[in-house]
């Protein structure tokens, strides 16, 4: 890329990121359920068409390709990668209406559904398939509407949605910091998925704070990013001691 100087989140001292230990993850899906509940993600009676469903945090199955009984499979939870590549994120670069933007202060890539016109360009541009389109009007059968949380507005038909690293939780944490008279800028918070994980395989924090667990783990020899060769520089790191898992993280490794 010619204009690699335009830095996204590389300026400040704050860059929220996530590290997911695949050696610990058992693929139970608690993270995904917590995410769905936290973010009012709609569901349909038939969720087996994976290409039409809405999922902010998808569990992928990775297989080592060997024969029984050398066969192994693991789960890989994939939230939005909140790419922090030099130029821009693949999605934020292409959105014609500025409905998705990267916050240079935090590294978070947001998405504003009411701004979105549903052109799906961002979805096409994202190599991680982190974005889902609302193909249908969301319907919660009565009385399941009662469990919709007011913190995140349900989306309407015809727009894109994706993981926000629970941006509303960041806002909540900042509000609390303000009330407590602390610096609202550098607050620590935890997204719903990380909070739910029963194996503590997910760690969230400031990647630029060398003292944070996330930053330390991101430098672990077991750490890798998915599709690092695309220079998207995801804010989500994965840990695995398995070579075959590393091999599956990018093409031609």
């Amino acid at each position: 890329m010619s204009s690699g100087t335009e830095n996204g989140s590389h300026g400040g001292h704050l860059h929220y990121g996530m590290v997911i230990d695949l050696d610990k993850c058992t693929g139970c899906g608690a993270c995904s359920v917590a995410c769905q509940e936290e973010n009012n993600i709609s569901f349909r009676a038939d969720e087996s068409d994976k290409l039409r469903g809405i999922s902010w945090l998808t569990l992928y199955r990775l297989e080592n390709g060997k024969e029984y009984p050398a066969y192994r499979a693991i789960s890989l939870p994939r939230p939005c990668m909140h790419c922090s590549g030099g130029h821009d994120s693949p999605c934020t670069y292409v959105c014609p209406v500025n409905a998705t933007k990267r916050d240079p202060e935090t590294g978070l890539v947001n998405h504003i559904p009411v701004r979105c016109i549903g052109c799906r360009y961002c979805m096409v541009a994202c190599p991680y398939h982190a974005r889902s389109f609302n193909w249908w009007d969301p319907v919660w059968p009565d009385p399941l509407t009662k469990m919709l949380t007011p913190e995140v507005s349900p989306r309407m038909r015809g727009v894109i949605e994706k993981c926000t690293f629970c941006g509303h939780r960041l806002n909540r944490a900042r509000d609390q910091a303000r009330v407590a008279g602390e610096d609202p800028k550098m607050v620590a918070y935890t997204p719903a998925c990380v909070e739910a994980c029963p194996t503590k395989a997910m760690v969230f924090g400031n990647l630029k704070d060398p003292q944070s667990e996330a930053a330390k783990l991101a430098k672990d020899p077991r750490a890798f990013q998915i599709l690092a060769k695309l220079n998207t520089d995801p804010s989500v790191y994965y840990l695995s001691k398995e070579q075959w898992v590393h091999k599956l993280s990018d093409n031609d490794l």
Partner: peptide, 30 residues
């Protein structure tokens, strides 16, 4: 609107399983 793990619990330590996290969908099940 939401079920999350209680980190004060000595055995689950804030962790939760997908079924437990879905618990409200049984209370409000049609």
């Amino acid at each position: 609107v939401r079920i999350r793990g209680n980190s004060n619990h000595p055995f689950s330590k804030g962790g939760i399983c997908p079924l437990g996290a879905s618990g409200l969908q049984f209370v409000y099940a049609p």
